[in-house]
Design a protein around this nucleic acid. Structure first.
Lengths: 201, 201
DNA sequence: GCAGGCGGATGACAGGTGTCACGGGGAGGT
DNA sequence: ACCTCCCCGTGACACCTGTCATCCGCCTGC
């Protein structure tokens, strides 16, 4: 019997996944949480062996949660399940110590298999995403560029971004201009979108 | 026995919801689709009585799908289930003929109850969203403003938007300026975000 | 009939934005 | 020591954007 922990901020999806996985005779959902920063504690208390982690969660995202599990509970394996198949996410999830990466587009019946493989010590990674992840390579952005791009995601004007990070507007424009060049975009909004799609943020 | 149709573009979520609802002794999932434009046909073929529709779907969104069901199969009721609780969505879903509106944050056990109520002819609407929907009022945007805002969502420059809709740049700027005023924003990106949050797009 | 709203357009203007050149400082590598 | 890369800043320039005034044609409601 494989003991599972589910982490997803949408209660309905979480409950539905629990119902789905509980149908399998060799799987048992022993804990459910809706926040990333509750994963480690719940996993320890419930004696979970595999953690199913969504990326988009309040408190702590699924990738950082996987890293925390790796650090605090070395014997527990993590499987990241997310809506968005961004190549950079795969890389970061694996680097964070996750044993698998699955998108929510995959057929439901494959999920139980993925859990079993992860439990057996194998790695499960969506093949398409793995290929893209290799092609795109790691992020070429510097720390500042990444930071400023995240603030540019919502289309904020340069002045607002500059005030938020306590920099001059000229400096912000220079960093964003560099990011625009590296992403092949022509506006900071477009650059921010591209960077996010590739998981560079 | 209530016959259900599930429509959600994420196969994993769709399958999980099916597993969850099939646990109820009086519910039976008789059809599953991943696209909005397959809903009517699948509902007719399967003899579904209630359609559970996600909003974000390829082909046709859940609200338009609810309208299509209303038109083509008057006896079938729709329950819209979505990730984002945007007030405008509720209004539009109800106007489109949906009998209920539930967000994916609600506890899993309440979903089956919502389905039963909808099947019984009652309306099921998330109370918080219903209140917000009344406060915000309907969209003040004109058709063009709405259209141009959707193109402005990703931060596209005015020139690109103008080319896309075959208008002069000046006209596009005027419409967007009006939208900026109505949303209380100061850039078109911000206006687009605000409008989307309120379900005006 | 006619006001009022919408869609479309032009022109002008202030201010925001992207680019480039250039400078200076600090951390890391050889 | 030296070079390289990152970070921060300034100034200048061309271009983009948001706003406003003003015009037109079209439809709808009164």
């Amino acid at each position: 019997m494989i003991r599972l922990l589910l982490a997803d901020d949408q209660a309905l999806v979480r409950g539905a996944l629990a119902a789905l996985l509980d149908l399998e005779s060799d799987l048992e959902v022993v804990a459910q949480v809706g926040r990333g920063d509750e994963v480690v504690e719940a996993a320890r208390a419930s004696g979970a062996e595999v953690c199913l982690l969504d990326i988009e969660m309040p408190g702590l995202n699924g990738i950082d949660a996987a890293a925390a599990v790796r650090r605090e509970l070395p014997g527990v394996r993590s499987l990241v399940v997310t809506t968005f198949g961004r190549p950079g996410y795969v890389r970061r999830a694996i680097e964070a110590g996750a044993s698998g990466f699955v998108v929510k587009d995959t057929p439901a019946r494959q999920l139980a298999d993925a859990v079993r493989r992860v439990h057996a010590g194998l790695r499960v990674i969506d093949p398409d995403l793995a290929a893209e992840s290799l092609i795109d390579g790691p992020s070429p952005l510097t720390g500042r560029e990444r930071e400023l791009l995240t603030y540019a995601l919502d289309g904020s004007p340069v002045s607002a971004i500059a005030a938020r990070v306590h920099l001059s507007e000229g400096t912000v424009r220079n960093h964003l201009s560099a990011a625009i060049g590296k992403t092949g975009a022509s506006t900071r909004s477009e650059a921010a979108r591209i960077a996010q799609e590739r998981g560079w943020l």
